[in-house]
Amino acid sequence: MALNSHPTRLSARNITLGYAGAPIVQGLSLELPAGKVSYIVGANACGKSTLLRGLARLLSARSGAVLLNGADIHRMPTRALARELGILPQAPTAPEGITVSELVGRGRSPHQGWFRQWTGADDDAVAAALSVTGTLGLAGRTVDELSGGQRQRVWIAMALAQETEVLLLDEPTTYLDLAHQVEVLDVVSELNARRGTTVAIVLHDLNLAARYADHLVAMKAGRVVAEGKPEAVLTAALVREVFGLESVVVPDPVTGTPLVVPLGRRAALLGAGASLAGAPA
């Protein structure tokens, strides 16, 4: 597929989000760079998942608006929006007994309706999604019998089968070992490179986020404290502010992107902290 010449823009304008009690995200504005991969990082309960849910209209903004190519997503019909914007929630659960091809096929739901039934194009989209996530060989199996890593890739395949211009992923590497984490993030980067899909990913792992991000967004207490290229944003001072953690930031030996090495009390106990802090870059 050709690179999208008009990548889709998704932005939040001064949004306030929350559940029953006090707002979790307050007066936040954010523009996801069109056609790029953004990673949203922050400590637990900083509101990053809430922000993602707000961007995907799973949660209505109390004030402010989320704009897709300039149009308020809350004024768009849900199915029309689902053809433009896909979201994979954190730790989704598959219905019992569902097969992989059926689950991934559900990703085609927004492309169907009363008069538009399942077609060969849907089969092709499912096959392509299974293929890029390496799950084509699992198509006939039931999701129950898969390993955690396989299951997560099947869910990502479902989100890919939706063929949206914007893709939001909430902790897509949960339950995955390191090899599969890298695999999943590679798949997303390839998708972005091939189709120009605008992607936002909430991720716990700072180092993987720094390595894969075109644009890094750091959040604390419901607001954005820093955003930009990982090289420009990710410093020891930011890690201290966002996570309350002392660290040394060195260049990743493979990619040159920032690599956060936490100090921690054990390193200090062993007397390694001082030598690390002075370690050559």
């Binding site: 053809r83 896909g86 989704p92 219905p95 569902i98 559900r106």
Partner: peptide
């Protein structure tokens, strides 16, 4: 079939 995926996933797929 949509709701069986959970409310968030279903909403993300365009189910009301």
């Amino acid at each position: 079939r949509g709701l069986a995926l959970g409310a968030d996933t279903a909403a993300g797929l365009g189910f009301n």
